[in-house]
Computed example of a mutant assay.
Amino acid sequence: GSVLLDGTDLAKLSESRLTAVRGQNIGFVFQSFNLIPTLTALENVETALVPLGVKAADRRNRAAEALDSVGLGERLGHLPSELSGGQQQRVAIARALVKRPKVLLADEPTGNLDESMRDEIVDLLEGLCEEHGLTFVMVTHDSAVARRAPRLATIRKGRITVKENRPVG
């Protein structure tokens, strides 16, 4: 198959061009948060902007805005160890969104969270993606999360099935 982003077949790009497209157009949210333990929430979010050449003052402002958008405007100076699992995932979401991507990819973003925090994070992701007009692709094994998706792709025995889904909630 092929993957098109803005009409460009990603499989036909050189490795360096593909890296540039990923850096500029795709935000990633992981199950394990992947925060740097010695950096504050603000610094962790800023790291996504460094490869894009964003100047320091603008990085700080954009990172602070992104953290505020996920409800962590008061936790900018906190280290990951000083944050709950849900707060750490919010930092990871802010880091993914701060570069203003076109696509947000989330790999089991609620896998390390309890049920109520899971629902809160999915609500947040859905709201932010709608607000920013992002394409949102999430991998999950959690059927409660999967039922919320408007389109569901399932892989069984090497076969992909795609169906329209009536979201719950």
Rank of each mutant, 00 (worst) to 15 (best):
T8R: 13
R166C: 05
T38M: 12
R75H: 14
S84Y: 03
K102Y: 03
G133P: 06
G77S: 09
D107L: 13
G53V: 09
R90K: 11
N34K: 03
L79F: 15
V29P: 00
M117S: 13
I93T: 10
I121A: 08
G27L: 03
L104N: 13
V162Q: 10
Q31V: 07
S32D: 15
L104A: 11
G73K: 05
M138N: 01
L72Q: 09
A64T: 07
V54T: 13
A63V: 02
V98W: 04
Q88L: 12
F136Q: 12
R90W: 08
E74Y: 06
R100E: 15
R156D: 14
T19I: 02
V137F: 15
A92V: 09
I36D: 07
R59D: 00
Q89G: 11
R156G: 05
V139K: 01
S81W: 02
A41E: 08
I121D: 09
R151D: 09
K12P: 00
L124H: 03
P51W: 12
A96V: 06
K12E: 14
T154F: 07
V162R: 11
S143K: 01
K163G: 10
A63P: 00
D68L: 02
I155Y: 08
L83I: 05
P80S: 14
V162H: 11
R62A: 13
R75P: 00
Q89E: 10
E46I: 04
N61E: 15
V145N: 04
A48M: 09
L134R: 03
S16H: 11
P167Q: 00
R151N: 13
A57D: 08
R90L: 10
R166E: 14
G158V: 09
L35C: 03
K163P: 00
A11F: 07
G73F: 08
R60D: 00
P80L: 11
V139N: 03
L10V: 02
T161I: 13
A66R: 04
K157N: 15
L67H: 02
R59K: 04
M117G: 00
D142Y: 01
A48N: 04
I155N: 06
D6M: 05
A63D: 03
A144T: 12
P101G: 11
S116K: 07
H78Y: 10
V3I: 15
I121Q: 07
H78W: 05
H132G: 03
M117Q: 05
L39A: 10
L104G: 10
A56K: 04
G1W: 08
L10C: 02
G111Q: 03
N44D: 09
I121H: 05
R151M: 14
R156T: 14
L39E: 06
G1N: 13
L42W: 07
K102S: 14
D107E: 14
D114K: 00
A149Q: 05
T38P: 06
N61L: 13
N25Q: 15
E65R: 12
R151V: 15
P101E: 12
